[in-house]
């Protein structure tokens, strides 16, 4: 499976990754090789096989509906790139 420039650019956009124009061919080549490696799977008939999402077929544990988290805004926002009036700031979102 060979990916071309358009494929790589489309994937990079979906993943919101800026890829340098000059690096696109290298990515295309490496991603294509990886997909070739992966394509070995396609030879195996798995039509009757139940997918395994979790190694242990365990079920979800439930949490009691009780408040355990208190306000830690200042503490948690110390790591934030831009904050004002308690809000995280991002470049203007246009709807």
């Amino acid at each position: 499976m060979a990916l071309n420039r358009t494929d790589v650019e489309k994937i990079a956009h979906l993943a919101r990754l800026q890829i340098d124009e000059n690096d696109v061919p290298e990515y295309a080549k490496n991603l294509s090789n990886i997909l070739d490696l992966i394509s070995q799977m396609q030879d195996i008939d798995t039509s009757d096989v139940e997918p395994l999402a979790h190694p242990l077929d365990a079920v979800q544990r439930l949490r009691a509906d009780i408040i355990t988290e208190q306000n830690q805004r200042e503490h948690l926002q110390q790591a934030a790139p831009a904050v004002e009036n308690g809000l995280f700031l991002v470049p203007k979102v246009i709807e």
Binding site: R63, D65, I66, I67, T68, E69, N71, Q72, R73, L76, Q77, N85, G86, L87, F88
Partner: peptide, 21 residues
């Protein structure tokens, strides 16, 4: 009383980000 996946309160009208754990 709390969020679907965390123990933070869901009460409406709190100061911004004071109920975001």
């Amino acid at each position: 009383t709390t969020k679907i996946f965390s123990g933070a309160s869901t009460a409406y009208g709190a100061e911004p980000n004071t109920q975001a754990c």
